[in-house]
Structures are given as structure tokens and as C-alpha cells.
Design a protein around this nucleic acid. Structure first.
Length: 125
RNA sequence: AAAGUAAAUCGGUCUAUCGCUGCGGAGGGAAAGAAAAGCACAUGUGCUUUAAUCUCAUCAGCAGAGGAAAGUCCGGGCAGCACAGAGCACCGCAGCGGUUAACGGCCGUCAGGCAGCAAUGUUUGGUCCCUGCUACAGAGACGAGACGCUAUAAUGUACAAAGGGACGAAGUACAAUGUACAAAGGAACGGAGUAUAAAGCGGGUGAAACGAGCACACUGCGGGCUGCAAUUCCAAGUAAACCGAUGAUCGAGCGUUGCUCGCGCAAGUCGGAGGGUAGGAAGCGAGAGAAGGACACAGCAAUGUGAUGUACGAAGGACGGAUGUACGAUGUACGAAGGAAUUGGUACUCCUCGAGAUUAAUGAUAGACGCUGUUUCGGCAGUACAGAACCCGGCUUAUAGAUUUACUUUCUUC
RNA sequence: GGUGCUAUCGUCUAGUGGCCUAGGACAACGGCCUCUCACGCCGUAAACCCCGGUUCGAGUCCGGGUAGCACUA
């Protein structure tokens, strides 16, 4: 099932700071992706962070919509990283930052998320 | 019918698939200890059950952004800190009356300016006693009347100058006196467009000319400060800071007298206590110090909740010529219970409404409908402004489109 | 989320309601100087964030909007 409960959300000031400081980074237009592999042995779920900057989108309505689109795209295609039933699956911390100045439709964002997840899955293994 | 003005209301709906947050419920699971009950035996242990706690790849169910949630411009609640009372300073408000928990809001109304044919909109409005300000122009800018002219004791400056100690010369300092100017004074005199003792009137300058306007001045009223990232609690942990013990032997640090001893401090070691930050919880929403309505209710009594109520009518009423307008004491009717005041605990009905997240949910995709415009009647285009963050009352700003009521102007028909 | 502040030539800034037709420095442009450049000298152009109000008069005072900055765990 493609769910996205609260446990899969990346929280905590220290962990977010560490991810942006030490994580690997690439661009999948219209987003920038920062990610990090969780060390072996810690059997935590993959956690994801999503945001759109206030400096590019002044109105809260647009920021909310972009955030929801990105989150929905990840929810539909999180199978690429491996299903939950796998016992020896790999876990990641991932952050999606929207960087384009225009509001893109869902299809564009969905394609970009698929491309990014495939890249992470390929590099992680 | 068209155009306009004001007030009020609404501001999308449905289906399919997948998903998020909260709530209580059902079901399953978990480990250790505590409580109650029961059973067994050596009065303590073991076992079982109950409710409670925690949890879930479970199950259906219910609820889930706004009229402005925005700006943070006012006011209040709530929280912490400060605080005897009064005054000063500082800040805010300002026709008049009313309304309110409170307000800079709202309602009614008066006067002036501006826009409009009008309905109407918009904007300004305490006072000048004290302290000050009013550039340029103008005789004069807030206690001021120029200007001309005349006489004069004394004063200052400039120029001229008799004189100016020794035997003499030059003539310095100084200087009677005279002239001019300045400032001061106004006893007498003169003129100004008219008039004339002055005041006043008129012309000119100027936004404003003894008339005033303004605020930094005065008067009245109000204001303690900071804000939910306030504030409170929980578990874990301990810092060069705090407390207690120790600080032995040789040498060694600082202070107490230059030295020694002694005393104190201090390093180190052990123990205790203990924040802040990060994490979690409360505050936080089925509310009653803050939603609306119905008309009854609860209790042992006093009584309490509801009700600071609703309707009628009305003295008064800023203003106004008057009728009378916003509001409205007393009164009448309806209204559960009660009837001076105080007090302990308990109780506080029904209906409607019902977000409570926290790296921050309220969504995504596909289709259908509705509304507006256009149309070749198949379609095509558009469907706004915008997202809760402790909660309320206002204001301001942004808004596609739609509806209702009242009024104004113009036209047409009867 | 809450609180406070700022906006003047291209840049940095000055500016008691009237002497503001808004001053200064650097930069820009034109000329002079030089064999040429620089330095130097002379000159020119260039701004009160936007919309209303108060006042005889507003860059300044008041209200609303826009943009930017800082503080606060």
C-alpha cells in the first residue's frame, strides 16, 4: 500500500541540520534533492521532508499546494526504494526543496520525483 | 426598462480510486510492578480474574480553513512580572448625545470644505488664560506705529584743534572747544487719502494686520510592563557555577608582616543538589471570565443557573422653527423559582453549532454538473481573492460572479 | 507566530513645516590639460517608494498601501 503516515515524516531540528550538512545533493528540476543513507542496523523507516521557499512564493496558498503535490508524488512512487515487506531493505533520509520560480503541474513534479527516487535507489545499493 | 446610490446575504455541487490529521468505539497483542477479589498451602508466596496503562500494516464510524483565516491598525479576555496612596513626566483620544466587557469601532445628529443633476459619498471639528511659533513681502507679524523736523545737559566714535613739564627744538601722551554720526529721550512743532487729541475707517503688502490661526502650550478623559516562542509540568542527563566531606607524606600556588610556624583560600578526589537548550506533555477548543436559540430547570435549606430577558408604552432626549430621531429612567404585560444581607457543599435542562495541526493535517488524479460570456447551437473560453496557529469584538486592505430590500435620475406604456 | 525599524540622484548620505527650484562625496557624460592614459581643473544631467488628508505652504506632520531589514526559543 502506498501510505504516508506521520512516522515517515522527517522531524527534529538536529536531524534536519545534519542532513543538510552531510547529505548528498543533486538537482531534479524543478526540485533539489538532498539525501542520506541510514546506517545498517538501525531499522528505521525512510523519512521524507518537503518544502517550498517563502522567498519564491509569497502566498501561503501556493506554497501549500506545491508541498502537497510533491508529497503526493512521493507517496505514489515510494515502491521504487523497496517495499516494506523486505526484511533487509535500505532506509534513507530525503529532502525535496522546490526551486523553480513557476508553479509546475502535477505531471512534471511526478516525473521528477520518479527520476530522483530511481537515482537514489541505484546509488544506495 | 436603463443607469446609479446605500444596506444586507452568498461566494460552488456530485461521483469513482488512492491518501492525511483528530476523536471516541469494537477487536487483537504486550511486559513489569501496584490495587481489589477469589483459590491453594508453612501468614508470605504462587496462580487466576477484574478494571486501568501502553501499543497496532486490524475493523468500520464521525468531524476536518475564511469572509476576509490576510494586514497586525485599535480594544478586551488569558498568563507572567511589578505594584500602599497621590502627583509630575510620557503616550493616546477629542463637535454634541447614545451604545458597549472595551475601543480610535458602531448608531443618531449639527456645522464647514470637496465630488455628484440627485439619492448619496468623503473629509475636518476641545481651548487660546499661561509658554511659544507665523518664512518671503510689508511701516508693522503680536503688546507694535514708522518717517520727517526742532531744541538740548550729559555719553560714545571719527575729524579738526588753542594748549601741552626742563635752556631750546621737534612735538608724543593728554586735551578745553567745534563739526558730523550713533544711540537714548519726547517737553514743544510738522506732514500723510480722509480725518485728527487718540482710537477708528480706507488703500497697499501678505495665507493672516490686535481680528486671529497653530502646537511643542492649556483643559477633560483613558493608559503599569511584556506577551501563548506568555506560562506550567514530565523523563533523562551534568557545566570552568553552588553546597558538604576530604585535602595524608617530600616539594610546590595565593593571602595574612621581610622570614619561619600557624591559620585561611585554593587545586585534586568523593558525594549531594541543580537549571537553561534540545525532546515530550499541558495551555489548546463539547464553550460558559466570553457562540446562538427555546423556556424552563436543579436542590437539604437559604438559594443558584437562566435573565443585564422579550413585547407594549413612555417622562426625558444632543440637535431642531416644529412634528419628532438614536437611545430611553419610572411603568404595564409575559416570565421557573425566590424576595434585607452573608455563607458551606451540590446541581446547572433541551435544541442548533462543533478544525485543533506543531519541519505544521484539511489533499491528489479522473469525470459529470452548475454559473458567466460567446456561438455556426456541435462546442469554445472563464470560474475570483485567498490557507487556521491561544481566543473573541471592531477597523483596514484583496476579491470572478450571484441574490434581496430601500432610494435617486432619465425614458417608455396605461 | 509575536515585536520593532527603515525607504532621498546609479551608490553612500545631509536636510528645525518656509532661506529647497532638495545640498555634499564617489560614479557617469562633455570640455580643458597631456604625445597618450592617470591625476588635476571647469561644466552638465540625475532623486524625496506609492495613494489620500491636515496646513497659506509637506521631503518633513497624520492615515492607508508596497518593498526591505532587525530582534525574539
Amino acid at each position: 500500500m502506498n501510505t504516508f503516515p506521520k512516522q515517515h515524516k522527517l522531524c527534529g531540528q538536529e536531524r534536519i541540520t545534519r542532513l543538510y550538512k552531510e547529505g548528498k545533493r543533486f538537482t531534479a528540476w524543478p526540485m533539489r534533492v538532498t539525501w542520506e543513507k541510514v546506517p545498517e542496523g538501525q531499522t528505521a523507516a525512510t523519512e521524507v521532508l518537503v518544502w517550498a521557499p517563502k522567498s519564491l512564493f509569497k502566498r501561503a496558498v501556493k506554497r501549500n499546494r506545491l508541498r502537497r503535490l510533491m508529497r503526493e508524488a512521493y507517496r505514489l512512487h515510494q515502491d521504487i526504494l523497496g517495499s516494506d515487506s523486505d526484511s533487509d531493505q535500505l532506509s534513507f533520509l530525503i529532502a525535496f526543496n522546490y526551486i523553480d520560480k513557476e508553479e509546475q503541474p502535477f505531471a512534471t513534479i511526478e516525473k521528477a520525483v520518479i527520476k530522483a527516487l530511481k537515482k537514489i535507489a541505484g546509488t544506495g545499493q
